[in-house]
């Protein structure tokens, strides 16, 4: 299989800030590729350059074999974009938005109607297609955007933070649509997100980027495996961290005021030893390494959600000392 997207030293500099720093990635035809990173990591800038909205300062890229600098029009015809900020027109109905899009993208008149019906059905908006978009909920707008992005049968679909600010149920629905789209057509999907579970759930491969550079790129499974085991959180008065380090399989120990987080391979087998080493324990939580842990282990930083997601308690559990 060929590459849907290849970037060659792709770079964007805004005054003194390196938004995207000599990026080289190859995205295969048909895969769901995730760009994961905190706010300001350069995800949206990268996508904007690939969509020919933004001109790179240096380097170039090809999308579906077309050069983004030399053949922007061909690139645009072959891609679909779902923006971070909904860009559907409030004052039009859902269907009208799609009709206009079809005309802008040159979907032939003969198949326009059929195609619109099809995408409306895919995202489950048939019954609301003739309502003004301003009466839609946030999730419905996002679905309409997805439908619009698919209307002209793009070979590559860019999704910039497709579920940002949506409630968990709606998110789940959007994820299902994305999976369905990727399965039913041989479509390459590039999505940016700072939700770890989103990248984990959807992507075949993930590139973690921070400050415009790729830190690591692999499958979610391989990335998680690289963390070195499960996360064991013990709520306890701090014991001597050296006692934990002596236990076999423990690769990392972080001591906080009233809890300890261990990274442990085969945590089930080691639990007795761990408990014995920790003295009085109020609670134990064992969870598999998430992409959050991957991100932290590579960057030393946590991904900050843009919304108040996660809750304080969870944040405390996740908090780590910076090494």
């Amino acid at each position: 299989m060929g590459n849907a997207i290849e970037t060659f030293e792709l770079t964007k500099r805004f005054k003194n800030i390196m938004a995207v720093d000599h990026l080289n990635i190859k995205i295969k035809q048909g895969e769901i590729f995730g760009l994961l990173g905190p706010n300001g990591a350069g995800k949206t800038t990268t996508i904007s350059m690939l969509c020919t909205i933004l001109r790179p300062t240096e380097g170039t890229a090809t999308v579906n074999g077309f050069d983004i600098l030399k053949e922007p029009d061909e690139v645009r015809k072959s891609i679909g974009i779902v923006f971070q900020q909904p860009s559907v027109d409030d004052i039009l109905t859902g269907r009208e938005n799609l009709v206009l899009h079809a005309m802008w993208y040159g979907v032939p008149k003969a198949i326009r109607r059929e195609r619109i019906d099809e995408v409306l059905k895919l995202v489950g908006l048939e019954s609301r297609q003739n309502s003004l978009v301003k009466t839609y909920s946030g999730g419905m707008r996002r679905r309409l955007e997805l439908a619009r992005g698919l209307l002209h049968l793009p070979k590559v679909l860019f999704l910039d933070e497709p579920t940002l600010g949506l409630d968990p149920q709606t998110r789940e629905v959007i994820w299902e649509y994305i999976e369905q789209m990727s399965r039913s057509r041989d479509m390459t999907i590039v999505l940016t997100t700072h939700y770890m579970e989103e990248a984990d759930r959807l992507c075949n491969r993930i590139a973690i980027i921070d400050q415009g550079k790729i830190i690591v790129m692999d499958t979610p499974e391989a990335l998680k495996a690289a963390v070195g085991g499960d996360m064991v959180c013990l709520r306890t008065t701090p014991a001597d961290p050296e006692r934990f380090r002596k236990i076999e399989g423990v690769s990392k120990v972080e001591v906080q005021e009233d809890y300890v987080v261990l990274t442990v391979r085969n945590s089930g087998e080691r639990l007795q030893e761990i408990l014995a080493a920790s003295g009085k324990v109020e609670s134990v939580q064992i969870r598999p390494a998430s992409l959050d842990d991957v991100f932290i282990s590579y960057t030393g930083k946590e991904i900050r959600p843009e919304t108040g997601e996660g809750g304080i308690a969870q944040r405390i559990m996740r908090q780590r000392t910076l090494r």
């Binding site: 909205i53 645009r76 015809k77 860009s87 559907v88 899009h101 802008w104 040159g106 619009r148």
Partner: peptide, 13 residues
């Protein structure tokens, strides 16, 4: 400002 212009500007027009 409300981003509807972007849809037009990224279209192959």
């Amino acid at each position: 400002k409300i981003d509807i212009l972007k849809e037009v500007l990224v279209a192959p027009l």
